[in-house]
Design a protein around this nucleic acid. Sequence first.
DNA 1: TATTGTATACGAAACACTTCGTATATAGAT
DNA 2: ATCTATATACGAAGTGTTTCGTATACAATA
Lengths: 130, 130
Amino acid sequence: MTNNIQPTQGELEILQILWKKGPSTVREVNEALNDDQDKSIGYTTTLKIMQIMFEKALLERNDSQRTHVFTAKVREGNIQSALLDRFLNAAYKGSASKLAMHLLGNHKTTPDELAEIKALIDKLEKNKPS
Amino acid sequence: MTNNIQPTQGELEILQILWKKGPSTVREVNEALNDDQDKSIGYTTTLKIMQIMFEKALLERNDSQRTHVFTAKVREGNIQSALLDRFLNAAYKGSASKLAMHLLGNHKTTPDELAEIKALIDKLEKNKPS
DNA sequence: TATTGTATACGAAACACTTCGTATATAGAT
DNA sequence: ATCTATATACGAAGTGTTTCGTATACAATA
């Protein structure tokens, strides 16, 4: 049940890094966090959050070496879908089409992406012939 | 600049009610909150949050009567777009098409809605002929 | 073996949101 | 004028997240 998982903002940032870079040490994650933008986060802060994430079972930890290596235990797509679900209900009262309209209307999407989405819609329309 | 506004979960629920029902008293909002689902929120809790929202300029207040009447000072679409923006960056690293794929893939959308979205895509494609 | 650098563990402070108890004001009925 | 019901105001406790200082462990090296 990945539905109940609610990573916080900080946790999500760490997950993004682990999803992108694969298994990493605290130091690597911390440096990646500080690479981003203008932020400056202390090493022990990152460590603490990752420890909490480990307790919450968001991360796996290999502690066979002195320097532990952490891995995201949850899948990117799963978390995204769960978060999307919450967001859709909280902000759009469940109206997926309204969200889609805002999404496509407000953000520059490349022609390729538009085509991809349209292809998906076509597929959905075929599978569900009312 | 409605971009900086970050209503909390509780604030958003109150905004939803005010958007739907229009100007309302604290009691009306509180009752609407308690109608929803299985929640049970005290009157003073609702009052406190609405007072804070007033301080944050999320709400307008007519206190010419003993019973104050509150109105959402922010537009539904504006808040939704701002929240969507944040969410898109936090959870999808800005990939609107990936979000769209999840959205359409995971949620039952009616044929009408799909058609509506497709029409929007067509329009976008015409306006931006690469 | 003693020193140094770097790792994790622990605990507490800072902050924000939510919740509600209690105080106070006021309108309306007696 | 007093009483009652209901309104807002205020303050503080409970909870969760983020932040980091400090303690402790340990490996490598001098």
